[in-house]
Each structure stands twice: as C-alpha cells, then as structure tokens.
C-alpha cells in the first residue's frame, strides 16, 4: 500500500486536495443560493408563477358593470355599441367596483375621443362608420347628437359616403366621379338601418356596363369602348375592373 502511495507523484495529491476543496465549496454555496423550489416542475422557480398571478387586476371585465348600471348596459346591448365594453371608454374599473363612492371613472366627453375609432382612415375596413371630423359638425362635441350608449345617427344618413368613406374618396379621384352610387347599386332603405343584413346590390350583367362602354352605346364619345362579344366574355366586368377606380384611362 505504502509503495503504491509512493509511486504517485506528489503533484497529484496536492491538486486533488485543491479540487476537493473547490468542489465541496461549489456544492455548499450552490445549495445555499439556489431557491428550494427551483426545478420543481421544470427549469424555473415554481413560486414565480404564483408571484406573476398575484399581479393587481385593473380591468374588471364587461359583466361586472351590469350589477349596478343595468339600465345603461341594457340600452347599450340593443345598439351598435353592444360589443364595445364599458371600460373601453370609461377606463379600468376595478378600483371603482371596490369603492364606487370615492373612485369615479372617466367619461370622455371631448370631441377628440370618438374619432379614435370613427375618424376616416383609409386603412380601416370598409363599412365601418367613419367621419371626417373637420367637416362633420366641427366644434360640436359628439355627444350632443349621439348617445354613446346607443349611438344610432340622429338622422339616417342620406349620403353613401357617411359609411363608405374609403370608396367615396377613391371614386372622387376616378373617371366615375360623376356616376352616382345608385346608378350601379340598388340600395333599399333598410340598408341604411341594418347595413349588414340588407345589403346593396351589384351589377349582375355585362350588358349593364355595356350601357356606356359597349361599341354601339349611345354615350359620350370620350368614354372607352369594348367589344362585349370578344372582350373577357366569361366575367362580369367588375370581376376584373374596379369600378370605383377603373384602371383604363
């Protein structure tokens, strides 16, 4: 045994002692510093999840308001804003539900609030009600004419561009600028009240466009002509052309 010990160069035991000290030190320090619940369910601190869910809730959710304000919520349910949660305009409401007496919610009455959604923006989906606030009763707060809880227009809009702003603006730049919407679309009165249920019609035949664009049409000479017999016979015209901004110039 002794002879075997003697054969080991003295460097080895010296370094081994150092290594053992380092390893023991590492294990001791590690067991002290690593949180006890680390790695319980995965490679993370299990209690972190409980810390995260303890974050304060600020938005109360749309159901809560009806408990006290059932009249307003009821009115809203029947109108266009039925899917707009109360807190969209009134802000986070948890503090108010906990202490309704002292915490009041904001109610934006200024004219600049409603245009956040309803100002005309070409990127907005067509059919979404939009106005140009500079020309739409400037200076008047929106709520003088519209009830935000039941925002039907005081007068049924006469003009198509009240809702179809993007199309109206496109058309105003096109050669069809003087063609009224109703020349091509049949718009039942119901369309203005229930736009998504009663829809406006579109031209059904090629001959309809041919009334102006056919070779022998009795229209103004400058209007471009096509031979209906040979020109794209498989399609109705608007399947290729966009009548609000026809590309042929």
């Amino acid at each position: 045994m002794k002879s075997l010990w003697g054969k080991i160069p003295e460097q080895i035991p010296r370094l081994s002692v150092l290594l053992v000290i380092l390893v023991v030190l590492f294990i001791v320090v590690r067991s002290r510093l690593v949180p006890p619940d680390f790695g319980k369910y995965g490679h993370y601190r299990a209690s972190a999840v409980d810390e995260i869910i303890s974050q304060e809730i600020r938005y109360a959710g749309h159901e809560v308001c009806a408990e006290c304000h059932d009249d307003v919520v009821g009115a809203k349910k029947a109108g266009y804003h039925k899917n707009v949660a109360c807190e969209v305009c009134h802000g986070p409401a948890v503090a108010h539900t906990e202490d309704p007496g002292s915490v009041e919610l904001r109610a934006p009455r200024a004219r600049r609030y409603c245009p956040l959604c309803h100002e005309y923006r070409p990127s907005r989906p067509t059919g979404f009600p939009q106005i140009v606030s500079n020309s739409h009763n400037p200076m008047k707060p929106c709520i003088t004419c519209h009830d935000p809880h039941d925002p039907k227009p005081p007068v049924t809009p006469k003009e198509c561009h009240a809702c179809h702003g993007a199309i109206a603006r496109t058309k105003s730049l096109s050669h069809h600028v003087y063609v009224p919407c109703t020349r091509c679309h049949e718009t039942p009165d119901e369309h203005k009240v229930r736009p998504r249920i009663v829809v406006a019609s579109k031209p059904k035949t090629r001959e309809f466009c041919g009334e102006c664009h056919a070779k022998d049409a009795p229209s103004e000479k400058s209007i471009p002509r096509v031979d209906l017999a040979t020109h794209g016979e498989r399609y109705v015209c608007w399947q290729c052309h966009y009548p609000h901004l026809p590309e042929a110039r």
Binding site: E10, Q11, R14
Partner: peptide, 18 residues
C-alpha cells in the same frame, strides 16, 4: 506552488508530461 517541494528528476519529468 501549493507548498510543493519535490524537484526530483521523476517529478520534473511528470511536470513535462502533464
């Protein structure tokens, strides 16, 4: 040196090898 003292031929040879 970790209080090393061995300067024998064998130890130095081991150093070189290491």
């Amino acid at each position: 040196s970790l209080f090393s003292k061995d300067t024998s031929e064998r130890a130095l040879r081991f150093d070189k090898k290491a």
